[in-house]
Design a protein around this nucleic acid. Structure first.
Lengths: 119, 119
DNA sequence: GAAAATCCTGGAGCGCGCTCCAGGTCAAGG
DNA sequence: CCTTGACCTGGAGCGCGCTCCAGGATTTTC
């Protein structure tokens, strides 16, 4: 089984080593396996999970929510509930995109107005 | 000339009274006119500016940038430069919308994958 | 003209999400 | 071996953007 050093995990996941440790402390990552000497050894499974975490963070999910989601993921039987949460999140993302576009539209109107004032 | 009390300005602008004071301290608002007793009296012009500020904040412009923009706006002769900055910002907004959509797409793929695993 | 509501200032505090540090342990190359 | 670099832990610190507070002045309402 392939494993990854902290530096490699950081490289692949796009999170800093400090952030990876922080996420583990916070319970967003389950405890990472260790070498005999106590160094972390990330698995492909960990990296897959981190990929989802990245996606959720980038779409604005707060750390606290991510933590709850991660706790839910400890129990295999909660798959349906987790999917439902992801779908809720997807709806919020959809809304925030819409809001952003609305504000962008407003911004463009303002720019157009300034332009009409003779730029 | 109509003026507005801090509470009214907050109501209309959608910022809290504390935030309005904070923006003024930071130089994002030019010094607001005062009544004889020292209370602030916001003008329609102030509210118009606040509307643009709201738009810029909602589209992710940092306070520091807003401050620079506001300083530029003190000089009437910089209209063209300001419009250029707004257009730069518009491009960044466009990019962030695209990024958000990309991540949303990825999220949806993950949801679809979970679904295929039997939910 | 008194009571209640609103506002003033300066500065401290806070929630979020990391990021950095000290002081030490572990691992890989020569 | 021994050096060099990566990693460990616990905890402090930070940047952002507000938000709240104390102690006091002003305005509004009745």
């Amino acid at each position: 089984m392939t494993t990854y050093s902290p530096a490699q995990a950081a490289e692949v996941s796009g999170f800093s080593i400090d952030t990876l440790r922080y996420y583990e402390r916070e319970g967003i990552l389950r405890p990472i396996a260790r070498t005999s000497g106590g160094h972390r050894a990330y698995t492909d499974g960990d990296l897959g999970w981190l990929d989802l975490v990245h996606c959720l963070r980038d779409t604005g999910m707060p750390i606290a929510d991510l933590k709850q989601y991660a706790e839910l993921a400890l129990d295999e039987a909660t798959l349906a509930a987790r999917v439902a949460l992801l779908e809720d999140h997807d709806r919020r993302v959809q809304e925030s995109i819409a809001a952003l576009r609305g504000q962008q539209e407003k911004l463009r109107e303002k720019i157009a107005w300034y332009r009409s004032q003779g730029v």
